[in-house]
């Protein structure tokens, strides 16, 4: 009884939210068609979708998306490796732990995009600079969460592991990493969001070399040519990819891991 009621409630919520979004879309279409604003600046939603479809078919947006994903993959991948090495060293040596904490306190408040000018001077205006900015933006949430997560593992679980003869790498691999997993997942989520933001922002400054660029560059270029439906189209693709990754990747993993293990606070 109770379960079905709960299910019904959450169904109602989803329905409610879906209807709201559809409502906003209809409102957008109507306002655009009423032509209260210049059509050039406020295109109708239907024209945005028609445009998007064309760009999907001719492969333009797909190519941009792939390029963005490649940049994010490289930046985020590097950040994960760096964070893992840093957090592990901090775990082994209290001195390094102090350093890491100092670094986090000082550099965490600095938005990734703020380092772009100096990165351009050091690395030039190519994909490598965007990857560097993505790396810088996503590394702090990763390190913070790993650092906290590894320390959140209960001492008794560590001792239960040591009692079974585990030490060093094996203790990290079998006890600390799974124990810290709720934090690791949170870190990855935040890092992914930051990486997206950083890549779009960085590309808007200079795109990438030789006219190659990702979605940020796409939006920027379309604005330059006043192809406003495409500007919105680019934003919609970013939203859709964000939603897809959240729902398909992160939530999929969460349901099968920390929620099944009862390691969520909700």
């Amino acid at each position: 009884m109770k379960v079905t009621k709960l299910k019904k409630k959450s169904m109602n919520k989803t329905l409610n939210q879906g209807l709201f979004i559809v409502g906003v879309m209809i409102l957008w279409e109507l306002v655009a068609r009423a032509q209260w604003f210049p059509v050039l600046l406020f295109p109708s939603l239907s024209s945005v979708f028609v445009n998007l479809l064309t760009e999907l078919v001719n492969g333009e947006i797909g190519g941009r998306l792939l390029f963005s994903l490649y940049l994010i993959g490289a930046g985020l991948g590097l950040a994960v490796v760096t964070a893992a090495v840093t957090a592990t060293s901090a775990l082994i040596s209290p001195i390094i732990s102090d350093w890491v904490q100092a670094l986090m306190a000082v550099l965490h408040p600095l938005p990734g995009i703020a380092v772009l000018p100096i990165i351009i001077l050091w690395l030039g205006t190519g994909p490598q600079s965007i990857i560097a900015v993505i790396w810088f933006s996503s590394i702090w949430p990763l390190i913070t969460n790993l650092h906290t997560g590894l320390r959140s593992v209960p001492a008794t679980q560590m001792e239960a592991g040591r009692n079974l003869g585990l030490k060093g790498i094996a203790l990290i691999r079998f006890i600390l990493l799974p124990g810290a997993f709720p934090y690791i997942l949170t870190g990855l989520r935040v890092a992914w969001a930051r990486a997206w933001q950083a890549s779009v922002a960085a590309e808007m400054v200079f795109g990438a070399s030789g006219g190659e660029g990702g979605l940020g560059w796409f939006i920027y270029k379309k604005r330059f040519f006043m192809e406003i439906p495409s500007v919105f189209g680019g934003m919609i693709v970013i939203i859709l990819v964000g939603l897809l990754v959240e729902r398909l990747c992160f939530e999929w993993v969460e349901v099968r891991t920390i929620r099944r293990w009862g390691m969520t606070s909700e």
Partner: peptide, 10 residues
Amino acid sequence: FQDFEQLFPW
């Protein structure tokens, strides 16, 4: 141990 957290939750 006394602690209920001694089992591995995963």
